[in-house]
């Protein structure tokens, strides 16, 4: 391979003991993922609050003056949506919000369990401090400085923001399907499938090198000269064929 993706360091992972004796490894979300989730949520609550104001003004014919009687049904619900979005949704969705879901993160307690409503409420009231002096400077700085990448609210609540790799669960079905009809080793099968999956995003020279290396190991009958002659498209076709006819190909290994 031309270059390797960095593996998560111990700073980005946390091991939690479980009653089964098999430790649980949590991937901690850093300030970037946190900010990404927050920005999505911020847009959602802004849009919802704005939509309510517009509906109240145009559909219900209410004035948007904060000092009028109408404010109880126009401005107040919009303010509740905007300011209580996080506490309400996090408690109702057990540590998730639409933004967190889209960013692929969720809140857990330090034992790896879903946090309690009390913990989520504490986490949210400390937003007052984390958001100081503006744009969550205190929260983000604390995130950068603390070992578990947590803000003050997380410290008070005993919570963590972890990466929620749902896609990995879905890949189980794919691996099962591939393994069912194959005699290739599981790691080779996995690698082959992933290479083909990422084919378009890899640099041409790199993918050619990877493909030749893979074919050299999985199809030893193919000579080195023959492999050298295969171009990008032909290599892709050979790998695809290998994946489709694993049983047949594996018989040659």
């Amino acid at each position: 391979m031309s270059r390797q993706l960095p593996l998560p360091t111990s700073d980005d992972q946390l091991t939690v003991h479980s009653v089964t004796g098999v430790d649980l490894t949590l991937s901690l979300a850093g300030p970037g993922t946190r900010s990404y989730a927050f920005v999505i949520d911020w847009h959602i609550r802004l849009l919802l609050a704005g939509a309510w104001l517009l509906a109240a003004h145009y559909a219900l014919d209410l004035t948007l003056n904060a000092r009028s009687h109408d404010a109880l049904f126009s401005v107040l619900p919009a303010a509740i949506i905007y300011f209580l979005y996080h506490p309400i949704l996090e408690v109702a969705m057990r540590g998730r919000t639409p933004g967190k879901r889209m960013a692929g993160v969720r809140i857990l307690n330090r034992a790896g369990g879903s946090p309690s409503a009390a913990a989520l409420s504490i986490r949210n009231i400390f937003r007052l401090i984390d958001s100081l002096p503006a744009l969550y400077v205190v929260g983000l700085t604390t995130c950068l400085l603390t070992p578990n990448r947590v803000r003050i609210g997380d410290m008070a609540a005993g919570t963590l923001l972890v990466v929620d790799d749902k896609a990995a669960q879905q890949s189980l079905a794919r691996v099962e399907m591939l393994a069912a009809g194959s005699r290739l080793p599981l790691d080779a099968l996995d690698l082959l499938d992933q290479i083909l999956d990422r084919w378009a995003t890899l640099e041409s020279a790199s993918r050619v090198r990877i493909a030749r290396s893979l074919l050299d190991r999985l199809e030893p009958t193919t000579g080195a000269d023959e492999l050298e002659r295969l171009d990008d498209g032909e290599l892709h076709a050979r790998l695809s064929a290998l994946l489709r006819n694993q049983g047949e190909a594996a018989g040659n290994v």
């Binding site: 034992a111 790896g112 996995d190």
Partner: peptide, 23 residues
């Protein structure tokens, strides 16, 4: 180790652990 099967099981285990250990 380092396969998608293990990664998928890690993720699934994390979800079930959170479910079992929820308050």
């Amino acid at each position: 180790p380092n396969t998608r099967t293990t990664a998928g099981l890690e993720s699934l285990y994390g979800h079930v652990h959170a479910l079992i250990n929820r308050t």
